[in-house]
Computed example of a mutant assay.
Amino acid sequence: MHSSDAEIDYYYIVAAAGVGKRMGLDYPKQFLEVEGKPIFIRTLEMIEKNQKVTGIVVVTNKEYIYEVKKMCQTFKVNKVIDVVGGGKERQDSIYNALEKLPKESIIGVQDGVRPFIEERYIEDSYTKLMMEPNLDGVVIGMPVKDTIKVINSKGEIVETPTRDCLFAAQTPQVFRGEILHRSYEEAKKQNFLGTDDSSLVEKFGGSVGTILGSYENIKITTPEDLLIFSK
């Protein structure tokens, strides 16, 4: 059980260690500028605005650490407490960032190229964990609108899951620091590679709740995704 009587420190890890291949870029997509501002900076600015957030650790490609630090200074993102190098997989990158944060805290993980994070995601995730001591984490996401098919290695449909039970996970994903640290340590020991942060916490016994996000809370991955900025 976890006490909800006192506020505890709230940190964010922002994953900005991607590449730009699917965007047709020769540089990481998080540096793509929209209206004069890199996408990941837009994400950082929204997190920084929240008064509960104590600090932010950005994880990026090792060769861009200095550049990311300079961008944070230029755009006056003052809650960034460190910028660390990423690893081979996203999971390795988050592990590197986690080493900079205390276990006795609440830790949110956010995609750097998911710039439509809303204030309520940050606020409500923290509040839900404080109010519901049975939960170890909270994931923002939305019900799946399309019918999903499970296929085999030959591309043949083998199952059609009930859509009512399907939930498309987004970020932020917010956890109690102790279990997030422990889950990442166990995953490293067991060579387990999860699909997101929640999958690690789930595997190692954590209970994770959900909060409705928005269908516009997309991860910028392909050139078509940029059309959302013109809405």
Rank of each mutant, 00 (worst) to 15 (best):
E63Q: 06
V84Y: 01
Y95V: 05
L44M: 11
I122C: 08
I106W: 04
T43Q: 12
E132I: 11
L32R: 04
L98T: 00
V138E: 01
K37P: 04
D92Q: 08
K69Q: 15
K100F: 04
I81M: 08
N78Q: 13
L44A: 09
A97R: 00
F75T: 01
N134Y: 15
E132D: 13
E132A: 09
Y95F: 11
G18K: 07
E119G: 09
I151Y: 01
K62W: 12
K62Q: 15
M131N: 12
L44K: 09
L98Q: 02
V58T: 08
V58N: 01
F40G: 02
S93I: 03
K76W: 09
I65H: 06
E132H: 14
M130G: 07
Q91N: 08
K37M: 15
T127N: 13
N61P: 05
E35F: 02
P28G: 03
V150I: 02
V150W: 09
D26Y: 15
N78C: 14
I94H: 05
F31I: 04
G141D: 01
A17F: 09
T43K: 02
V144C: 03
I81Q: 14
M71F: 03
Y121T: 11
Y66K: 13
V84K: 00
I151G: 09
F116Q: 06
E33D: 12
V59W: 01
I47R: 11
Q51S: 13
P38S: 05
G108L: 05
V109G: 03
D26W: 08
V57T: 05
Q110L: 10
G137R: 00
L101S: 09
K103L: 02
N50R: 09
I47A: 11
V59F: 01
G18P: 07
N134M: 15
D124K: 05
G20K: 12
V84N: 01
K37N: 06
Y64N: 10
G36L: 03
E123C: 11
R90L: 12
E132T: 11
T74D: 07
E63S: 13
I41N: 06
I56M: 07
K128V: 10
I47K: 10
I122E: 00
D82C: 07
N61E: 08
E104P: 07
K69C: 13
D111Y: 12
K49N: 11
V138Y: 00
P38A: 04
E132N: 14
Y126K: 00
I151D: 14
E104I: 07
R22V: 10
D82S: 06
E33T: 04
A16P: 12
K29Y: 00
P133V: 15
I151C: 04
K70E: 08
N61I: 08
G55R: 03
F75V: 12
K100I: 11
Y95R: 13
M131D: 12
G85C: 05
E89L: 13
D26V: 14
K76S: 14
V58Q: 00
T60S: 05
Y66I: 12
L129D: 03
E67L: 10
T43L: 07
K62F: 08
